[in-house]
Design a binder for these strands. Structure first.
Length: 526
DNA sequence: TAACGAACTTAGGATTCGGCTG
DNA sequence: CAGCCGAATCCTAAGTTCGTTA
């Protein structure tokens, strides 16, 4: 399966072609609101600065029908909860409902067949929606949209200790939605009896529709799927920037090391922060408005209470202990030995401060990124995460694999390398709810295998004794067979315990995020 | 220059899919 | 051949970055 995926990636990559140059200026070009000639060929596209498309046509977002109470006596429940059904699914459900009194419905086969077909109907409908609303035409090509459904209303549940949890996320109506498409395209039809808030034609942005969400008052967008050319090229550029960093990183490192001794406090703080971003792959850490969102931090927003200094720990000198909640309220806990000047600087930064004070009080993400921009065109804090994730993957793969390995061995090594990256980036997950059970199953298997091994060992001993007595060819071949059996079983046992270790180590590590966002596919392919 | 806002990427949990196994 | 389990996909929250505005 994974091999197939890589092949697909390869195909996608060869399609990507030349990487467009980054626009020199991000100012709004003249073409912002005007329609330039359409129908240009895909490969020959050369957009002016900041222009994302020449032609964009789509059906607008899909609005799920609003809830209407069903007439008395017509209610559908699943697992004790009322469910809302589409017209078709509802009709099929009534077919079953009409037969409730009949003894058919007590028959397992009848129930199963009905349920399977009913589910098929729901699936068909999802496919129909995907076909109708799930694609747009961008510069003459049909592209998949990432999220074409308007988010349904509900109670907001932020992550972690969110001050706004439980607030109502109100229903979005067409009157809330701004549509973005080509001026000369077929303007999407709003649902019957409604109007769009606005229809505009801005080809300097990539979104197709947008609305303001009612809990945080932020804008939500409908955008293209990651497999689209637009997103693919952007991802390609991201990895190109990370690759370029490789040529600068040595010098950047010597520079920030030198800056640890700068006379200016601001520079020292920046140098220590950058060291953490580089070495530990911490996020930039923008300031957040408190009371509006959960209290989480990144590098620049670390507070004194988030670090502890140990002159000596774990047999190392100058150990820094980090303990804070990062993005999505995922805990970051790490003890790292650092260079002496870093340690001394941290002592200095923490002097005469309260636990709630900023560790880097002279530093903001803006000033840090401004500095990085001067060191390399396009360099920002997050590039270090991409760079370090990709370089780590490459090094791990180099160390773990050799060309003659079997595909299975390569996949295992790839997963190992992937895991090292996920740990670096602190990509965690909740231990799966099924973990205990499946681990138990595995342990049972291991136990059984151990018994088999013991049994085989005893049999081998017996065969050996037998051979000593008999000394003929037949007893020798029995002995050999027992020996091979024992070896095979021992190998299987080893395999199982590796599996168990793997499972245990993986239980809290999420591999998907790094695979998706940080690992340059070209490294995987190579 | 700080605050704000827009646009885009990155993230974990829930849900669905699909291949494997006993 | 169902039932299990990990992977893929969906969903949308939570970040980063950069331009604009006060």
């Amino acid at each position: 399966m994974r091999v197939v995926r890589l092949l697909r990636l390869r195909a996608a990559l060869t399609l990507l072609g030349e990487v467009p140059r980054r626009p020199a200026s991000r100012g709004v070009p003249d073409s912002r609101r005007t329609q330039k000639g359409s129908g240009a060929r895909w490969e020959e596209e050369k957009h002016e600065d900041g222009v994302k498309w020449r032609q964009l046509e789509h059906k607008g977002p899909y609005f799920a029908p609003p809830y209407e109470p069903l007439p008395d006596g017509v209610r559908f429940f699943y697992d004790g909860k009322p469910v809302r059904l589409s017209v078709v699914a509802e009709e099929v459900a009534t077919f079953y409902g009409r037969m409730l009194d009949h003894e058919y419905t007590t028959k397992e086969v009848f129930r199963k067949n009905f349920f399977n077909d009913w589910r098929k109907k729901l699936k068909e409908e999802a496919e129909k929606l995907q076909q109708e609303f799930g694609y747009c035409i961008l510069d003459g090509h049909r592209e998949k949209i990432g999220n074409f459904k308007i988010e349904p209303p509900g109670l907001f549940r932020g992550r972690g200790d969110h001050p706004k949890m439980g607030m109502l996320k109100r229903r979005i109506m067409p009157e809330d939605v701004v549509i973005n498409c080509s001026r000369d395209s077929k303007i999407p039809e709003p649902p019957a009896g409604h109007q769009w808030k606005e229809v505009r034609s801005d080809n300097t942005v990539t979104w197709l529709a947008a609305w303001t969400e009612s809990v945080q008052n932020s804008i939500k967008y409908i955008m293209l799927n990651p497999c689209s050319k637009l997103k693919g090229e952007k991802a390609w550029q991201k990895f190109e920037t990370a690759r370029r960093l490789r040529g600068f990183v040595d010098e950047i490192r010597s520079q920030y090391q030198a800056d640890w001794k700068s006379r200016e406090m601001k520079t020292r703080q920046r140098a220590v922060a950058l060291y953490f971003i580089d070495k530990l792959a911490l996020r930039a850490g923008n300031e957040k408005e408190d009371g509006e969102v959960a209290d989480t931090v990144g590098c620049c927003s670390l507070r004194v209470e988030h670090v502890q200094l140990h002159p000596e720990a774990d047999g190392c000198q100058h150990v820094v202990e980090f303990d804070f909640l990062g993005k999505d309220c995922i805990r970051y806990y790490n003890r790292v030995p650092v260079e002496k000047p870093v340690y001394k600087n941290l002592q200095l930064f923490m002097e005469n401060k309260d636990p709630r004070d900023d560790l880097f009080d002279r530093l903001t993400t803006t000033s840090l990124n401004k500095h990085l921009q001067e060191l390399m065109d396009g360099l920002t804090a997050k590039v270090f995460r991409t760079y370090n994730a990709s370089i780590t993957l490459q090094e791990q793969l180099r160390a773990l694999t050799r060309a003659e390995d079997s595909t299975a061995a390569k996949i295992l090594s790839y997963n190992r390398a992937n895991r090292v990256v996920a740990v670096l980036c602190n990509h965690q997950r909740a231990t799966p709810s099924t973990f205990e059970k499946s681990m138990q199953n595995l342990q049972t298997k291991i136990q059984a295998k151990k018994e088999q091994v013991a049994e085989a060992r005893a049999e081998l001993r017996r065969a050996r004794a037998e051979h000593k007595v008999q000394g003929d060819g037949k007893s020798r071949s029995v002995l050999e067979k027992k020996r091979r059996l024992l070896e095979k079983l021992q190998e299987q046992l080893a395999q199982l315990s590796v599996q168990a270790t793997d499972k245990e180590e993986n239980k809290q590590v999420a591999l998907g995020t790094s695979k998706l966002n940080y690992l340059d596919p070209r490294i995987s392919i190579a």
